[in-house]
Design a protein around this nucleic acid. Structure first.
Length: 565
RNA sequence: CGGGGUAUAGCUCAGUCUGGUAGAGCGUUGCGUUUGGGACGCAAAAGUCGGGGGUUCGAAUCCCUCUGCCCCGACCA
């Protein structure tokens, strides 16, 4: 590509509301333009990168035996009624009506459509297993779109759905997809980690997320330094403490804490550390309020909590009014001591081994000191309901846990029969009997990968693309093309030679001053730069500089081809 | 959904408190000089000050209202 014939649109100034590096750099490089909240146009430059990612994904999916198809982005309400998700999916589902007032949604995902396709197309176990995928635009009406294409409302996703007769077959395809994902992210040059993920309300058997490691990531992941254990913090189990509860030595006392409502304030006020306090949360349970007790320095894990029988799938905090009505105090002073018998008290494993602890006094402006389980407070059940923290023992018993941040770019999931059952997707098995298929689903956030890569790879000058994602591998920059015809001819010749060797090259023939040209090529992250000038022409060498190098070096054309492989 | 902010030239923003001729930088266009790390000079085009209503002799500015966008929060007491 000759840049004079391209639309490169870098800018110096960007809106102040771009917060993270990838968002800023994508705007500055002119890869994307915002159309409306969470909606972006991909410029010619941005699209080149997006296509690179897409093609790697497509190649590896094909290699792994998946078959590409394309489903509509607009989907009829009736299909979503069949799985009950028309209502259950919530506000993220963008609902639209056509001229006949028929209702549709813009697809946030395609389980319904693919399962409908499968129930019509697949009739025999002989057609299984099969794995269909598409690369398609999705729309999720996010509560708060942010970070550019990282959390946009409209985004490009690769989603695959596999169909099986048996769990063993599903597990096999799942493993193949896991391997394919590992290849994809490795080829894309990303530093990533596959982590165990929560299977959510669907309750499937296995699920892994592929997380690109970046400090700006919205997910927290826990990984062991003594094994390959890694899990989303939502999923990571906090092991029971090894010590048992000491015997009570202190007497229960009620103390005045007039304005101290947070653990930090109470602990500081009473001169104890937060890990000697018990914090109590009241949630809406299946049959009335439920109390959760945790050590003051720990945080409740909502995913774990929601799975408690007492809560029945959701973890919703009780309102101040409900709490006032039930126990006569407000948030900030709740404690396990003297709670009504009707409220189950679920105690975290670590909170359960505390003795002589501090907790809320169940009266405004009071806390208790010297509280002890059994003697002063009832335990209905002990459970793991907290987030793991840095330094916890790894659940597999090997090493200790560390916490890192990640950007979820892929998710593989053994769905089971949930959708196939709801939509009656059945085949005849080898006994001639009708059998519901079991499913897997495998997603990759194609557009998000572009942002995630930049998060991971950038410097002061701009983006530092991995070779596999760069819009072009090489930039040939011409200095002062108008002065000497030989200079622009030499640049042209090199440009053509590189492309002829299958090395994607861009020729910067815009005639900019060198500073502007170099700055642009660095901003848009081209891995290799070759400068052609009268200076080099006289010397018979090319001036080469890699994107992350700080000095140029003189090399021959032969050396350049060697270097580019 | 709650709270806060914001909307002025293509972009980034001043100007609003204290009402009185619409501003800057970047970008764009033309001419000239320049040409190895985002050049310089001269000239120019460019705005329904988000929409609607009101107050006023007069509104970007004050009041009401609608809308878009952004930020924070939406359980961790």
């Amino acid at each position: 590509m000759r840049l004079s014939q391209f639309h490169l649109a870098t800018v110096k100034e960007i809106p102040a509301d771009a917060e993270i590096a990838s968002h800023k750099l994508m705007l500055r490089a002119g890869m994307i333009r915002r159309l409306a909240s969470g909606l972006y146009t991909w410029s010619p430059l941005g699209l080149r990168v997006l296509r690179k990612v897409e093609n790697v994904v497509r190649e590896e999916m094909n290699r792994a035996g998946a078959i590409e198809l394309l489903m509509p982005s607009v989907q009829p309400r009736e299909l979503w009624e069949e799985t009950g998700r028309w209502e259950k999916f919530g506000g993220q589902l963008l609902k639209i009506k056509d001229r006949k007032q028929q209702e549709f949604c813009y697809g946030p995902t395609h389980e319904e459509v693919i399962t409908d396709f499968a129930r019509n197309e697949l009739k025999s176990y002989k057609q299984l297993p099969v794995n269909f995928y598409q690369i398609q635009t999705k729309f999720r009406d996010e509560i708060r779109p942010r970070f550019g294409v990282m959390r946009a409302r409209e985004f490009l996703m690769k989603d695959a759905y596999s169909f099986h007769l048996t769990q063993e077959s599903l597990a096999a395809t799942y493993a193949v997809m896991y391997q394919a994902y590992t290849r994809i992210f490795t080829r894309l040059g990303l530093s990533f980690r596959a982590v165990q993920a929560d299977t959510g309300a669907i309750g499937g058997n296995a699920s892994h997320e592929f997380q690109v490691l970046a400090d700006s990531g919205e997910d927290a992941i826990a990984f062991s330094d003594g094994s390959d254990y890694a899990a989303n913090i939502e999923k990571a189990e906090a092991l029971a403490p090894t010590n048992t509860r000491p015997t009570a030595t202190a007497a229960l006392q009620q103390v005045a804490t007039p304005t101290q409502k947070t653990i930090e304030d109470v602990a500081a006020f009473l001169g104890v550390s937060p890990d000697r306090c018990v914090k109590t949360l009241l949630l809406r349970g299946r049959d009335g309020l439920v109390a959760l007790c945790l050590r003051g320095d720990h945080q409740v894990n909502e995913v774990k909590a929601a799975k408690l029988d007492e809560l029945g799938g959701e973890s919703i905090l009780a309102s101040e009014e409900e709490i006032l009505a039930a126990i006569g105090t407000r948030p900030g002073f709740i404690g396990p001591v003297g709670l009504p018998d009707s409220i189950p008290v679920i105690v975290d494993r670590d909170a359960a081994v505390l003795a002589d602890f501090v907790c809320g006094g169940n009266a405004d402006g009071t806390h208790c000191t010297g509280a002890n389980w059994a003697r002063d407070a009832r335990i209905s059940r002990i459970a793991d309901i907290r987030n793991v923290v840095e330094g916890d023992r790894s659940p597999d018993g090997e090493g200790i846990l560390h916490i890192a941040r990640g950007i979820e770019v892929g998710h593989v999931f053994q769905l089971g029969t949930k959708y196939a059952e709801a939509l009656d997707a059945v085949v005849l098995n080898d006994q001639g009997k009708t059998q519901v298929m079991t499913m897997g689903c495998y997603g990759i956030g194609v557009s998000r990968i572009v942002a995630a890569a930049i998060e991971q790879r950038h410097d002061d000058a701009g983006i530092v693309w991995p070779e596999a994602m760069a819009p072009w591998r090489v930039a040939v920059c011409v200095i002062n093309p108008k002065h000497l015809p030989e200079v622009s001819e030499a640049a042209q010749a090199l440009y053509e030679a590189l492309n002829a060797h299958g090395i994607e090259t861009v020729l910067d023939d815009r005639g900019l001053r060198p500073g502007g040209m170099f700055a642009d090529m660095e901003l848009i992250g081209i891995p290799h730069r070759v400068v052609i000038s009268d200076r080099g022409l006289t010397a018979g060498t090319l001036e080469y500089r890699g994107r992350t190098e700080t000095e140029s070096r003189a090399i021959t054309q032969e050396q350049l081809f060697d270097l580019l492989g």
